[in-house]
Simulated scan of single mutants.
Amino acid sequence: MNMETEVLRWFQQVADGVTVTEVADLAMVSQPAVSRALARLEDEVGTPLLQRSGRVLRLTQAGAAFKPHADSVVNALDDGLAAVTEVLDPDAGTVTVSFQLSLGTWLVPHLVRRFLLEHPRTQFHMRRAEDAWGGSLVTRGLVDMELTSRRPDTAQGTWHPLFTETLYLAVPPGHRLAQLEEVSLAEAAGERFVAMRPQWQLREIADRLCNAAGFSPQMVFESDDLTTVRGFVAAGLGVAIVPAMDANPDSPMPGEPWLVRLTDEGAFRDIGLIWSPQRRLLPAAERFRAFLLAQHLTSH
C-alpha cells in the first residue's frame, strides 16, 4: 500500500463537504486528477469510500469508518511539520482552528485579519466545527482550538467565554413586528417558525425560550445552516430566533430579514474558545489563543 498524503487530504476535504471542483482549485490541479486520485485511494482500501448524492459526494459506511483514521494521519503529519517549522522559525507557524459556520461570516475573518496584522507570516488551517453531533474537534485532537457556543461535555476541553450574543426574532420585511425595537417571544406564538435542526445548540435554546413563553413553535422549515434560516425568513416563509451575526438590527440590508430584540430572559448565547489542556500548543497556536483571550468582543 502506497497512499499519498495529498490524496488523504483531498479525501478529508471532500468528506467535510468540499466539492471535487473546489478541491481541484485549491490544489491547483485538474478535477479529473482529483477524481482519479480518490478512485486510487478506494482501490487501495478495497471498497468505495464515497458515493454521489446529487451534486456532492457523501461518505459510505466504509468511508465513515475510514475517515477518523485518515484525519489522525493527516493531522499527526501536520503537527510534525508544524513543529519542525516553528523550531526553525517560530513566527511562521501554523494554527488549526474550527468554528461554527455562523461565526465564519464575520467573527473569524475579523479576528484572523487583526492577528495577521501583527503576525503576517502565520498560517491558518480552518475547519467547520461538528457541533451538530455534540462533539468537538479539539477533544479528538484534530485542531488546536475551536470557536463555538457549545461547551465541551468532557474534561478533555477547556472552555473560556469570549462574549455573549443577543438573540433576536427575525421577521420578514413588512411583518407586523418588523418596526419594533424589542418584543416578547409570546407575541410570536401564532407564527410559523424556521429553525435549525434539533441537534443544533441554537435550536435547543429556541425551543427552551418558546416553552418558557408558553407555546410550542410550529416548525415549518429546518436547516443546518443559519444563513439559510435567515434567507427563508426574508422570503416570508416564517420567523426565526437568531443572533445578529454581522447584520445591523437597526438597518437591515435589502433581502435581509428584520431583527427585533427579544426581551425574554435567557435570549442569548455565549460564544467561547475551547482548547485541550492535555495538548501542548505550539508557539503560533499559543500566541493566537492568548490573542483571542485578550479580546474584548461585542455583538449587536
Rank of each mutant, 00 (worst) to 15 (best):
M1A: 14
E4T: 14
E6Q: 14
L8G: 12
V14M: 09
G17P: 08
V20C: 12
E22S: 10
D25P: 01
D25C: 02
P32M: 09
A33E: 04
A33H: 11
V34F: 11
S35T: 11
A39P: 01
L41R: 07
L41C: 13
E42I: 14
E42D: 03
V45D: 01
G46R: 02
T47G: 10
S53T: 15
G54F: 09
G54V: 06
R55I: 05
L57C: 09
L59Y: 05
A62G: 05
G63M: 03
A64T: 14
K67L: 15
S72K: 15
S72M: 10
V73E: 11
A76G: 11
D79I: 06
A82G: 01
A82D: 13
V87H: 10
V87K: 12
D89R: 07
G93D: 00
T94K: 09
V97N: 01
V97W: 00
Q100A: 09
L101P: 07
G104E: 06
T105D: 04
T105M: 02
T105F: 00
L111H: 00
R114D: 13
L116V: 03
L117F: 04
H119M: 03
R121E: 13
Q123Y: 01
R128L: 11
R128K: 09
E130S: 10
W133V: 15
G135T: 12
V138F: 12
V143N: 04
M145T: 09
E146M: 06
T148I: 07
P152Q: 13
D153Y: 00
T154I: 03
A155H: 06
Q156I: 06
G157V: 05
H160F: 12
L162V: 12
V171P: 02
G174P: 08
G174L: 13
R176A: 10
R176P: 05
R176I: 07
R176H: 10
E182C: 10
A186R: 14
E191W: 02
E191F: 04
F193C: 04
F193Q: 04
V194S: 08
R197K: 11
P198C: 09
Q199I: 08
Q199G: 07
Q201F: 05
L202W: 03
I205M: 12
A206N: 05
A206V: 06
C210L: 13
C210A: 14
V220T: 14
E222I: 01
T228K: 01
G231S: 12
A235N: 05
A235D: 09
G236V: 04
V239P: 11
A240S: 13
N248E: 03
S251M: 08
P252C: 01
P252G: 00
P252H: 02
P252E: 02
M253Q: 07
P254W: 04
E256L: 00
E256T: 02
E256Y: 00
W258R: 09
W258M: 08
L262D: 08
T263N: 07
F268E: 15
R269S: 14
D270H: 02
I271P: 10
L273H: 01
L273E: 10
Q278K: 08
R279L: 01
R280T: 08
E286I: 02
L297T: 07
L297K: 02
H300G: 09
H300C: 02
H300I: 00
